[in-house]
Amino acid sequence: MEEPARQISRRALTLWRIYGMIQFAITFVVSAALIVAIVRWEWPIWIMWVAAAILVLELIFSVWLLPSLKWKRWRYEVTEQDVELQHGILLITKTLVPMVRVQHVDTEQGPLLRKFRLATISISTAATVHKIPALDEQEAEELRQSISALARVAEDDV
């Protein structure tokens, strides 16, 4: 089985970097609180070093490395017959969902996604839900319509 053809929007990368930064900011606030605690109550100093290491690692991984790896890996393809997905950084998963198995399709958009004109599409079968994150808004809308048009209710097979 070959790689599915299409990639998700380039803007997703920026968005994921921002998510990483938000996470980084939270860790930063916690670290700052820890430093206050170290000064105020004379907590052991090594706590500070651990916090610093976590901060650096987080900056490298969640802001820089993981989003780009994740973006590079994410592939999808929708044909009349099926939906194919590929994702995962260390553990790569390729998934095949036949169109006749699709029961409904949803798109969702959080405030940040909307700002970037992106949307997440989730494809539900009777037993599973598959998500394609951060697609271009318009593309997601088209995809949603074409999938729901293609998906037929297979009677009795559920």
């Binding site: 790569i92 998963t93 390729k94």
Partner: peptide, 9 residues
């Protein structure tokens, strides 16, 4: 309903 292949790098 769905089938997938998983593999680590």
């Amino acid at each position: 309903q769905a089938a997938s292949m998983t593999q680590t790098i």
